[in-house]
Each structure stands twice: as structure tokens, then as C-alpha cells.
Design a binder for these strands. Sequence first.
DNA 1: GACCAGGTCCTTG
DNA 2: CAAGGACATGGT
Length: 211
Amino acid sequence: MSGSSSVKVKKVTQFLNRKYGTIVWWNASTDEVMIGAVLTPQTRWENVEKALRYLRLEGLCSIAAIRDADHATLENAIRCTGFFRIKSARLKSLATRVMDELGGIGAMASQSDDDLRKNLLGIHGIGEETADSILCYGFSRPRFVIDAYTDRICRCAGITTNRHALKSLFEKVLPHDAGVFQQVHAHIVEYAKEYCGKRRCKECTLRTLNG
DNA sequence: GACCAGGTCCTTG
DNA sequence: CAAGGACATGGT
């Protein structure tokens, strides 16, 4: 059963790679990836980018600046992403922990994948998806991001919908390389946005890949 | 107005 | 532990 899941994952990722080729999807500094990852939940990406622009204008697009930022200024800059009170608190706790207890981003960059992940998950407001997003896109670590779009793709392709199972499946099947993980996840997001609705997939052809 | 958007945490049963 | 709700703005 797990063998056939592996085959499905390979077929899906090859199909997406032929369809989209190489795409640059989220090329940003570690600081910006961390901030964006906290702002992303339940929010359109365009609004996250808008908030990042506001933060840049306020000089708040870095972890160090956010730690020292005025609450009201921070909240106003990210208001357009929704949940702005919670998210500003999460940014604050993230920035404080990173700067004051983890030795800054430079020190984190020299930690092992597992230690880094553990430290991120220990921060209030950082869950599995946000942590893996930061690991994969911000620190170029081979941790596969499972999000709502991955769920949909796998539902359409007839692969398990259990997130932990999916994560280990993708990490087992794909080459253990952060760049590959970034590409595959970017492909999944592109495809799901276009073809896979929240409840039902529209005209995606993933189901037929197995036959 | 209804429904959705790249989660996470807290509270209940 | 599973399920339900809260968090909040912006777009279709």
C-alpha cells in the first residue's frame, strides 16, 4: 500500500514538473520568509505581499526590527492579512525568541535540521506547517511543507490525506533536497489553485495518472 | 450576504 | 484524542 502511494507521488510530481517546469515561487530573505510564513494562515497571498510592502515602508521587514516595533504600528501594517492581533503577537513572540534566546538567525542557521525545527515549534503560534515553511524556504532545509493545497492534490490523486503520513511520504520519495522540495510544493500550490476546489476538484486530471 | 483564503490554539465532550 | 470555535480582513 505504501509502495503504491510512492508511485502515485512520483507520477504526480513528474506530471506537475512537465506542466510547470522550473518556477521561482518564493525567493526571499530568511527574515522575510519567517514573517510571511506567520502572516500566511487563512489569507490570500496577495494580501501577505501587501503587508510585507507596508512592513518594508515602516522599516519593519526584519526580525530584529519587529522585536523592537511598536505594537500599533505593527498591527496596522499587517491588518490586511486578517487575524492581525494574533499575528502581530506571533511575530513579536517569534522575533523575541529568535533574537533573545536563539542567538539570532545566524546562530539558527548553524543548527541541525531537527534542532532548528524543534526550536521553531517551541515558539507560541508556530505550528508544523509554518515551521516547515520556514525550514524549507527560509533555511533551505529538506522539510516538505504539507498545507491545504497538498491535501487537495492528494485527495484528487487518491493518496492518503493524513498530513503526517503525507509529509514522511514526500520526504521519502523525493530526492532529499530543499530545492526540489521547494519546486514540488510550488507546483502543487499552482495546480491546486487552478484546478482543485476546497470541497471538490474541478477538472484536475490527477486521478487518471494512475490508470 | 455567503463563502473562501497556503493555520494555530483553546475549550469541550 | 476528536471536534468545534475563535481569530479578522479582503476578494469573488
